[in-house]
Design a protein around this nucleic acid. Structure first.
Lengths: 193, 193
DNA sequence: TTCGTCATGTAAGAAGTTACATGATTTC
DNA sequence: GAAATCATGTAACTTCTTACATGACGAA
């Protein structure tokens, strides 16, 4: 066991959230970096993205920390590393999930940003923008609803929370649709003041 | 006028969204970099943050582009630059607001991320996490509701859209509260399956 | 005279993305 | 035999934040 490096204290306080995404995906069955990326694209992408370039370094880091174990498992002549979560990995994931820390909610929405400044536009242009923002959320609701069957199938397997996060996404965008629609009616009705 | 640089074509297609935040804030009355930052903290912060370090370089850039004009206006011996939007600036802002481009909606939510993996937890721990996420959105709803009087006052001044974006934020978090509460009831009732 | 606010500025670094590079295997 | 998918890797870059630095002014 290596001697503890006292000066490293500040870099130690747990992994970053991206590493927990990778750890979590391995814990629910992703075996390769490629599969981690695929699962992210199908699920957490709507509230947490990571790029492929982050995944492979992250896997190495998690393995060095003893939270996952990898072994070579080439398919024919194509190289491949398959990973499994370790007991320490499960413990670390559970600790993170149960830890009562801030859980930042970060939103960066160009649509809302544009709407905020829409009073500088003509009435018609502002209405068009509002309509575009509503449509965007409607499209997103449609996209997410299309994923519901998959999430329900996953639920049958005993994983209930992916469906919950999907419903959260749907509800969030539906709420935006509703507020936009109400405001559109008001604006279309009374262009004055 | 400088000779056009052909190789710069890729860096030219409009300002980034952060620059439009600054331009927009100037257009609705912010006069100094300091005031831009303050207004962002009171309003767009919930769907678009920028740090102070971005603002001053951005102001210089907008001025060079002729979208705002600045003049020295020291208060006593304290240096200060006050800015105003130009006709070109108004045109550029309006063009951006009306431009039909993608309007990315980016969400990065640690709460939803944790929930996604909550099936790896015990029933009680998962419930506690769910409860924590609900509380977080309830707090956010409370915080945003406290801003409503300000937004209503602003509306009296003829700026209707800041209130709209505030209502959007409230609705989004209220939707999350509702979905969490419904799921909590289901989970608390039937711990089985 | 001390604290909070007004006001500007930047250097250093963290974090994350894009884009490229490589090549095997499977499917059409 | 072409195209899509599987699979890994990384260099370069952009973007943004943190933290520091400076100092005047106003109120207590």
């Amino acid at each position: 066991m290596p001697a503890p490096a006292a000066h490293r204290a500040t870099t130690e306080p747990g992994l970053g959230a991206p590493a927990y995404v990778v750890l979590g995906m391995i814990s629910i069955g992703a075996r390769t970096g490629y599969e981690v990326k695929q699962m992210v694209e199908q699920s957490t992408r709507f509230f947490w993205t990571i790029s492929q370039a982050q995944i492979y370094p992250s896997l190495r880091h998690l393995e060095q920390a003893g939270l996952i174990t990898g072994r070579e498992d080439p398919q024919g002549r194509r190289p491949r590393r398959v990973f499994e979560i370790t007991a320490a990995g499960h413990a670390e994931l559970a600790a993170w999930l149960s830890r009562e820390d801030p859980m930042p909610f970060e939103l960066r929405d160009t649509g809302m940003l544009k709407l905020f400044f829409a009073d500088t536009l003509d009435h018609d242009e502002a209405l068009a923008l509002l309509h575009a923002v509503r449509r965007r959320s409607e499209d997103r609701v449609g996209l997410l609803r299309a994923l519901e069957p998959v999430a329900r199938a996953v639920e049958e397997q005993g994983y209930h929370h992916p469906l919950l996060t999907l419903e959260l996404g749907i509800a969030v965008h539906q709420a935006m649709v509703d507020v936009c629609a109400a405001f559109e009616r008001r604006q279309a009705a009374g262009p004055r003041t």
